[in-house]
């Protein structure tokens, strides 16, 4: 395991979430489950972050915010879709203002389902994301880079 996947710093953004998953993200970092003992720190600056935790079913006002944060993160970066709403749209999938999940805005690496997502599932997802960071670091050394998603690009197709 290279240094890339030790102590990943996370940045969290709520994209039309009900807050249930957001408070479970914070609870994962607090003494009850304490992901901070693994060196996971919640940062507010996208340029300091390795993993992007997104919650919520995403409405059109949020798409450019999510893409802005994703584009600013340095490589290698991983995206975790936390909760059913972020994975697929959840119970709100047929609402008029919902585009149906984070993978319609940016490419997602790990899906952590649950309503609300449990802290244990989040720690599991962070461990999976560490493996993804390793793979991406190897790819980066060979010259492959993550796509820059234009803010105005159309909504991505499912599973892109």
């Amino acid at each position: 395991m290279s240094f890339m996947s030790k102590s990943p710093w996370v940045i969290h953004y709520d994209a039309s979430s009900c807050n249930g998953c957001d408070i479970e993200v914070l609870a994962t970092l607090c003494p009850g489950f304490d992901a901070e003992r693994f060196g996971v720190i919640n940062t507010g600056n996208p340029k300091h972050a390795d993993i992007f935790l997104v919650t919520g079913s995403v409405n059109s006002r949020n798409i450019h915010v999510i893409r802005e944060i994703y584009n600013q993160m340095p490589e290698p970066k991983a995206v975790i879709a936390c909760g059913c709403c972020a994975c697929e749209g959840g119970v709100f999938h047929d609402c008029y203002n919902v585009i149906g999940g984070v993978d319609r805005a940016i490419p997602v690496d790990v899906y952590a389902p649950g309503c609300a997502v449990r802290p244990e599932a989040l720690i599991d997802a962070i461990v999976e994301a560490e493996k993804v960071l390793e793979e991406k670091y190897e790819a980066m050394k060979k010259g492959e880079h993550a796509p820059v998603i234009p803010l105005d690009a159309p909504v991505l197709k499912k599973g892109a």
């Binding site: 709520d14 039309s16 919520g56 409405n59 006002r61 709100f92 203002n97």
Partner: peptide
């Protein structure tokens, strides 16, 4: 940023 429109559901 969080408007989902769930009253229509």
């Amino acid at each position: 940023f969080i408007h989902r429109g769930l009253e229509k559901l």
